[in-house]
Design a protein around this nucleic acid. Structure first.
Length: 422
RNA sequence: GCGACCAUGGCGAAGUGGCUAACGCACCGGAUUGUGGCUCCGGCAUUCGUGGGUUCGAUUCCCACUGGUCGCCCCA
């Protein structure tokens, strides 16, 4: 084989891509109802944006970025997540000067250099939303609700909302200090990764999957117990609003999230799954310091990123059939040269009337054309031959029922159009 | 970055150190000279991932590489 697709990427082939279109249309429709506007930012940005935005100590920045130098010697990086670019745009276009809040959504590819496995690719896709300019806890709750609605609209069941508050720059150091004090005497018993985390990002130790680490952190001080008054009030309000909205959630004091920019609300959407990676189908949280970090005013923000691949994977595992119509409205079967000549006009008329229409281009005999029509999942097969031409008529057969009738040629398009609407 | 398993036609999948590499699906043609989905018949691999080695001989044994799948880490 001469060329092969790059590792960790996929071709979305016809038959599969319709599912994507369906999922995307659901996301767009939902965003319209929640009054979000779409934003499209570049898929690459200056490397420094992600270093600053996502955080130097994160795995993403440390080892997963697709970074390259362009011909002008600029260091650029394919976006590993959606928020940083959107924030950059918010700041650069001075959108903070317009009436707030700003409610945006995006759908597009993200890139991370990792070993591919179930539910993990190097190019993957996210549907994300971001809201700037409000700290109102109702917004936190509505965003979580929007995520839940998205999964629900697709027919996905069993989506769990895991919720936590990671505090703010005022109270987080308090927790951090307590945590380090608690863990330092036990440092030797922690796994290697966590030993280094202890200095750099001790909160992440709470999220370690290592059994021993889990034991050791069993009674470790929790972030939620260290929240300052403002953060506590906010967190309580978010929970209240979630209750009001009827959104079920599970408190997970160990939930940390891998990106440094989160403050206060942090959440994940999870689902039961065979693949070990695939369980997390989405996640997000509040990032009140990020806009300032990127060079803007001190504008609060909150958002989520939902993995399209993982959502599709979960739908597949649950054997959910998306209501997608792959069929063509009318397949035109022709017999003889004259009929073939006329077919292009008929096809065009059908298409202009809004129907999808197809014919044979391989000189197949009638049987072959019928077979092709069947394969194309045609609703109607229209047969045009010598007899029909002579009588200015055409035979229309409904494949599902096998019923057919001869109709006048000038009523043909209307007939198909009416039938296709049902 | 680490580990395990795998690599045969468009797809799925058997197989053996030796002359013509099963089978199923799909596809094409025919039985049925103007009617699909069922049935029957026929057709469909001139590098068995790539390179090297062992051997009289390798798709089958060994090594390397590449790729895939799954897991660890982390995340969507």
């Amino acid at each position: 084989m001469a060329f092969r697709i790059p590792r960790g990427t996929v071709d979305l082939m016809p038959g599969e891509v319709e599912k994507w279109q369906y999922v995307e249309s659901k996301a767009r429709e939902l965003c319209r109802r929640y009054h979000f506007s779409e934003i499209r930012t570049p898929i690459f940005e200056h490397t420094e944006l992600f270093q600053r935005g996502v955080g130097e100590t994160t795995d993403i920045v440390e080892k997963e970025m697709y970074t390259f130098t362009d011909r002008g010697d600029r260091s650029l990086t394919l976006r590993p997540e959606g928020t940083a670019g959107v924030v950059r745009s918010f700041v650069e276009k001075k959108v903070f000067g317009q009436p707030q809040p700003t409610k945006w959504y995006y759908i597009g590819p993200m890139f991370r250099y990792e070993r591919p496995q179930a539910g993990r690719q190097r190019q993957f896709h996210q549907f994300g939303v971001e809201v700037f300019g409000t700290e109102e806890p109702a917004m936190d709750a509505e965003i979580i609700d929007l995520g839940v609605q998205f999964y629900q609209s697709l027919g996905l069941t069993g989506v769990k909302v895991e919720l936590n508050s990671v505090g703010c720059p005022q109270c987080r150091p308090v927790h951090r200090e307590q945590l380090v004090k608690f863990l330092t005497p036990r440092k030797d018993e922690l796994c290697k990764d966590c030993q280094s985390r202890l200095d750099r990002n001790p909160m992440r130790i709470l999220d370690c999957k290592n059994e021993r680490c889990k034991e050791l952190t069993q009674d470790a001080p929790k972030m939620v117990d260290c929240l300052c008054d403002e953060c506590r009030t906010h967190f309580d309000a978010v929970k209240e609003y979630l209750d009001v909205l009827g959104v079920d959630y599970v408190l997970n004091p160990r939930l940390v999230r891998g990106l440094d920019y989160y403050t206060r609300t942090a959440f994940e959407f999870t689902v039961e799954s065979k693949g070990s990676q695939a369980g997390t189908v989405g996640g997000g949280g509040r990032y009140n310091g990020l806009v300032k970090e990127i060079g803007g005013d001190d504008v609060p923000g909150i958002g989520f990123g939902i993995g399209i691949e993982r959502t599709l994977l979960a739908l597949e595992e649950q054997e959910v059939t998306l209501p997608i119509d792959y069929g063509v409205d009318c397949y035109l079967v022709t017999l003889g040269e004259e009929a073939k000549r006329q077919s292009v006009t008929l096809l065009k008329a059908l298409r202009q009337a809004g129907c999808s229409a197809e014919r044979d281009y391989l000189d197949r005999k009638m049987k072959g054309q019928m077979k092709a029509a069947d394969r194309a999942q045609a609703r109607y097969v229209a047969i045009l031959g010598e007899n029909e031409l002579k009588a200015n008529s055409i035979v229309v057969k409904e494949l599902a029922t096998g019923e057919q009738e001869t109709i006048a040629l000038d009523q043909f398009v209307d007939y198909v159009r009416e039938g296709s609407r049902k």
